[in-house]
Design a protein around this nucleic acid. Structure first.
Length: 483
RNA sequence: GGCCCGUUCGUCUAGCGGUUUAGGACACCGCCCUCUCAAGGCGGAGAUCACGGGUUCGAAUCCCGUACGGGCUACCA
């Protein structure tokens, strides 16, 4: 049997971290089992669903490196892949359930229902709706229906069935008393399906074999199993993922900082790193390995190694991981990754990068080990693009130190004479401290500040090589003239 | 209120009855490397496995209860 899984976001907002992790697990599970990964848009909430959100979700998924075999932009023979376009499937399913007595019309008003709810809650009863309309005589039902009286369609929970149990792939055996399951609404008075109905109809029609989704649906599962059964369809395997929390142990939300995938992209995170981090937030390869590539994930992912407890999102570990991925990139890939950030900062243009590609690749070793996010790059390499303005602090600290100006003058003289490669530059500058009688640090920091404008910079000798002799001497002269 | 789920270092986790003085990673501390900052190497501190009962020769691992946290209980998803 071919594994068929789906990620079914409702386009009521951006793709957030929790949704992304669910998508990743579904995708990895499908790939690992040579199955089919389906993207379905659950847009049954007309109030909050928008095409913009759908587009944004798709963009985020693609950015993360996920691909789907069926769904928007991919096609497939189980479509359409938007719930709002599958109305006839829900109608057909409801007809089937009416015919078999698994669904019945309910004419209760919203006020009546609210009153009943309050009552059942105070009496400690377990089921929500009291099933008043389920007991209506057939002729009365027929009369009110033909009179056009507003009504919803409810599931007739088979009380005689006994407890609804299932073996969750993550949580194990789980069982719900049949009395605790409500005769919930399948189809609203306006004819549209509710989530618990539409999802089952679609999962059945799309022949979904494994439903991997958020923990918030665990209690919905017995309801959905009842619908699968009423429809005469095989129930899929369920796997419920626990939530992702913020540092305070509360559901991740804006209060904890960025929650959308695109926000992380915009903060300079690599998709590979976010994918890796999210994958490990609730799943482990072996308990030892922390760097897990997409390839490893899609060849090793298993439901058994998903953890049951909620995970707290740790931005610091994500940042560390992003740095690890950044360090692992080739110079060429790094240039591609940082290009938008350099352009955005106004340091260069796309044309310039294309024209001087080797030079741009030569600056990569200067910064690759020093950044954890792409948004840190521009500030670190800015000195390569424009002469720095020396801050008062840096000047006082490095240029006005004892012996600094003499060292700087000496450095200028030796640099003028040398071939401008890092090794030669180092050899030349290493003679300065002794010649002038200062500590190496004093001499090097003076040059660093004169050339980069800061007491903190990439390695000095390599930086000078990349900068070039002309700019280096010009900056040293400028600094000397200020002393 | 009812039903259901969860609980191992600050955080993510390994562990699936004895191999455990509970392992790894992030963060933290120290040392080394060193032209600054990083990166890297080495070492350290950090978990009475929520608590209380059982079962067993033996429990973080199995069972029950309690506490705490969470989910569902909508004509939201």
């Amino acid at each position: 049997m071919t594994v068929r899984v789906r990620f079914a976001p409702s386009p009521t907002g951006t793709l957030h971290l929790g949704g992304a992790r669910t998508a990743i697990y579904n995708w990895a599970f499908a790939r690992r089992n040579h199955g089919v990964f389906i993207l379905r848009i659950d847009d049954t909430d007309p109030e909050r669903s928008t095409p913009e959100n759908t587009a944004q979700i798709i963009r985020s998924l693609r950015w993360l490196g996920l691909d789907w075999d069926e769904g928007p932009e991919a096609g497939g023979n189980h479509g359409p892949y938007f719930q709002t376009q599958r109305a006839r499937n829900y109608t057909a399913a409801l007809e089937r359930m009416k015919a078999t007595g698994h669904a019945y019309p309910c004419f209760c008003s919203a006020d009546e229902l609210a009153a009943k709810r309050d009552l059942t809650r105070t009496t400690g009863a377990t089921s929500g709706y009291d099933r008043t309309c389920r007991a209506l005589p057939a002729d009365e039902v027929a009369r009110r229906l033909s009179a056009g009286e507003p009504h919803v369609w409810r599931l007739a929970v088979p009380l005689e069935r006994g407890p609804v149990g299932f073996s969750d792939a993550v949580r194990g055996e789980t069982e719900f008393p049949i009395e605790s399951i409500d005769d919930f609404v399948l189809v609203r008075s306006d004819g549209t399906p509710t989530y618990n109905f539409a999802t089952v109809v679609d999962d059945a029609d799309m022949e979904i074999t494994h439903v991997i989704r958020g923990d918030d649906h665990l209690a919905n599962t017995p309801k959905q199993i009842l619908v699968f059964e009423a429809l005469g369809r095989k129930t899929p395997v369920f796997a419920h993922l626990s939530m992702i929390w913020g540092a305070d142990g509360k559901k991740l939300s804006k209060r904890h900082g960025a929650t959308s995938v695109e926000a992380y992209r915009d903060m300079g995170y690599l998709p590979e790193a976010l994918l890796n981090y999210l994958a490990l937030l609730g799943w482990s390869l072996d308990g030892e390995t922390t760097i897990v590539s997409a390839d490893v994930l899609t060849s090793s992912f298993s439901l058994e190694r998903i953890s049951k407890n909620p995970a707290i999102f740790d931005p610091e570990k994500l940042e560390w991981m992003n740095g690890a991925y950044l360090r692992g990139m080739t110079a060429s890939a790094f240039v591609d990754a940082m290009a938008p950030w350099l352009i955005e900062a106004g340091l260069t243009t796309g044309e310039d990068i294309d024209a001087r590609r080797p030079w741009f690749e030569s600056i990569v070793p200067l910064i690759q080990e020093r950044v954890r996010r792409l948004d840190e790059v521009a500030e670190k390499v800015a000195f390569l693009f424009a002469d720095p303005v020396l801050s008062a602090e840096a000047t006082d600290k490095a240029l006005r130190a004892d012996g600094a100006s003499a060292a700087l003058r000496a450095a200028r003289d030796v640099l003028d004479e040398v071939d401008f490669d890092a090794a030669s530059i180092e050899e030349a500058l290493r003679t300065v401290p002794e010649a002038v009688g200062v500590k190496p640090k004093t001499a090097f920091q003076a040059v660093r500040v004169a050339v980069t404008g800061s007491t903190v910079s990439p390695p000095l000798f390599e930086s000078l090589e990349v900068l070039g002799k002309e700019a280096t001497l010009r900056r040293i002269d400028a600094a000397l003239s200020q002393l």
